[in-house]
Amino acid sequence: MSKYIIVFTFFFCSQVQASVYFIKSAKVDLLSAAEKGSDVVATLERDTEVKELDVDRTWVKVESDGKAGWVSKIFLSKKKSMGTSQSLLDTDEDLSSSARKRASALTSAGAARGLRAGSDQLYQEDGEENLAALKIMESWKVDDEVGLEFLMNPQGEL
């Protein structure tokens, strides 16, 4: 009887896999304790696969490449990212074709034309929309690295 129980337990356990996550942030420090300010064990980059080892409230102990440490759960995702905005825009042709394949034949070409981000025109510029202000807002976009550095360093200046 006991051997069946062992077999069953083994079989059941094999169904429950350790949780695997991906790093969501551009980069995140793996900490020695579940607290900001702890020693940094390693720095992980976006989409690094990590395995969950332990959980302490909002912190998760993970392992990657032989190194274990703690990260806030806000930096973890169940799925890999879709790539950066730059990589998406670089593949304009493929994206249009992808949209074309999936949209109806009647409207697909128009849909593809309209899907390019950052185009200079709006489709509904009818007086209620302010394209000039939008362009100003878009011109304020700050370099990602500069923004991250500024956020991480409270002494940072503009």
Binding site: K24, S25, A26, V28, R46, I74, F75, S81, M82, G83, T84, S85, L88, K141, V142, D143, D144, E145, V146, G147, L148, E149, F150, L151, M152
Partner: peptide
């Protein structure tokens, strides 16, 4: 905002 987006936003 740019820094936060890098930290918790959608990279796409």
């Amino acid at each position: 905002g740019a820094g936060l987006a890098q930290m918790i936003g959608r990279p796409e």
